[in-house]
């Protein structure tokens, strides 16, 4: 999956991350609307929509009779549940590729690059005992606060900034960030996980010997769009929706 997304984002590696994010959003919007078309009962949705539209028109047509309007409103709400039932199958089918895509985008576009000026905190969980590391300097990045050790829970934490997009502290078994270009996966922690879990956590790094887990609090990226500061998810939501609407019109999908 990582490779697939690396290929998809290859043309955008030297551009601003926003371009890559918009490209994937557009692609997702179109793909998901096509999946929706394929997996949903389009005829039933179309028929039901017409029926629901009719109920709504009926409410306007029979305004003089509140009882009729209430009956129609009740039917409309009942139809609404039927409509949601029709959405269930495509929604469930779309869930998996959607979550995989969202996880990939989260790993690639959600965090600020680990460079000087972007301060973050890391917590290392040791497996058996806390080694006497922490005195040496990291290979990439700078530790900017003293290492705080909690012996009872085998935890150590400190603040740092990266260098060239990376923070690497081999002695503590930490490798965070990315040295890749725009749209590459940024490692922001390391936990033990299986194949399925790793599918939904591409940002998960490799656990070094002796460590039980590495967690970081790297600052979230905000994208400047239309004067606002948008999260990656907002960008994805809006742009995928816009492209889905376009796709729905072009491919005549009944939603």
């Amino acid at each position: 999956m990582n490779t697939l997304f690396d290929i998809l984002l290859f043309p955008f590696r030297s551009l601003d991350p926003l371009w890559g994010l918009m490209w994937i959003s557009a692609l997702s919007g179109i793909m998901m609307i096509l999946v929706f078309k394929k997996t949903s009962n389009q005829q039933a949705i179309s028929k039901l929509r017409r029926k629901m539209g009719s109920r709504a028109l009926g409410m306007l047509l029979f305004l003089e009779s509140p009882l009729t309007v209430i009956k129609l409103a009740f039917s409309l709400i009942t139809d609404n549940f039927v409509y949601l039932w029709h959405l269930l199958k495509p929604m469930l089918i779309i869930t998996i590729p959607f979550l995989v895509t969202a996880a990939q985008l989260d790993a690639r576009y959600s965090r600020e690059p680990l460079d000087a000026g972007h301060r973050a905190t890391v917590t290392v969980l040791w497996k058996d005992s806390i080694p006497s590391a922490g005195t040496a300097s990291p290979e990439y990045g700078v530790v900017i606060s003293p290492v705080v050790t909690i012996p009872d829970s085998l935890e150590q934490s400190f603040s740092f900034t990266g260098t060239g997009g990376l923070f690497v502290f081999s002695e503590m078994g930490i490798r965070l960030g990315t040295a890749g270009q725009s749209g590459s996966i940024m490692v922001r922690g390391a936990e033990k996980s299986g194949i399925i879990q790793s599918l939904f956590r591409p940002w998960n790094g490799v656990l070094e010997h002796g460590t039980a887990g590495v967690r970081s609090t790297i600052q979230e990226t905000r994208y400047n769009i239309f004067g606002g500061r948008w999260s990656w998810f907002a960008v994805f939501l809006v742009f995928s929706s816009v492209w889905a609407i376009i796709g729905a019109v072009v491919f005549k999908v009944k939603v």
């Binding site: 998901m32 999946v35 929706f36 929604m91 779309i94 939603v255």
Partner: peptide
């Protein structure tokens, strides 16, 4: 969950 179902909901 996806644009299609999202609109639907």
């Amino acid at each position: 969950i996806g644009p299609g179902a999202g609109f639907g909901i």
